[in-house]
């Protein structure tokens, strides 16, 4: 039997997971940050596409944990626990995104500078969970598409102007 490899696509403010030998990715990240968590043995991976830094800034009651960096990390950890008996100590992370897309508007609207904040909170949440960040492809002013492959635990990052790089 041959296994057909596939790539799970995760939308904005959403999360997903995949098992080896598949891949998981998210497209057109601007200020959003993709957080990928996987065990060192590469058996599974979970990805969240977060839009905002922390859940405390929300102004509504319906609560989507995948949308905020601070709540997405615990959600990813819970997902990994459901997928297998992975100990936190063996987990690794890769993150990408957090760009500042509108350089001019961000001078008048702090909301436009949220990419930087998303990245900071994602790093902090991972640090608290004791998960090392193996690749941190953040900042700048370009949109990114990412695919994490369980085959070699690589994160491929594509931008329009700089092409595809592997981290």
């Amino acid at each position: 039997m041959t296994l057909t490899k596939k790539t799970v696509k995760v939308g904005m403010a959403d999360m997903g997971y995949c098992l080896a030998p598949n891949s998981i990715g998210s497209s057109g990240l601007g200020s959003c940050v993709a957080i990928v968590i996987y065990p060192a043995n590469g058996a599974a991976a979970a990805l969240a596409h977060v839009m905002l830094p922390d859940a405390s800034i929300r102004r509504n009651d319906d609560f989507n944990r995948a949308k905020y960096a601070d709540t997405a990390v615990p959600l990813l950890l819970e997902t990994m626990q459901r997928l297998g008996p992975f100990r936190n100590a063996t987990l690794r992370a890769k993150i990408a995104g957090g760009a500042n897309m509108f350089q001019r508007l961000s001078t008048v609207d702090p909301m436009m500078k949220i990419g930087e904040r998303n990245t900071e909170v994602a790093r902090e949440a991972l640090k608290q969970a004791n998960i090392p960040i193996m690749a941190d492809v953040t900042g700048g002013s370009e949109g990114r598409s990412v695919v994490f492959s369980l085959k070699d635990q690589s994160l491929s990052v594509r931008t329009i102007h700089s092409g595809t790089k592997i981290y």
């Binding site: 497209s27 057109g28 601007g30 959003c32 839009m51 905002l52 102004r59 509504n60 897309m101 509108f102």
Partner: peptide, 16 residues
């Protein structure tokens, strides 16, 4: 840039 990256910043104030 990519549509996702170009449009999302405008959705942020609404995403709260």
């Amino acid at each position: 840039d990519m549509a996702g990256a170009a449009i999302t910043p405008s959705l942020l104030p609404l995403s709260l």
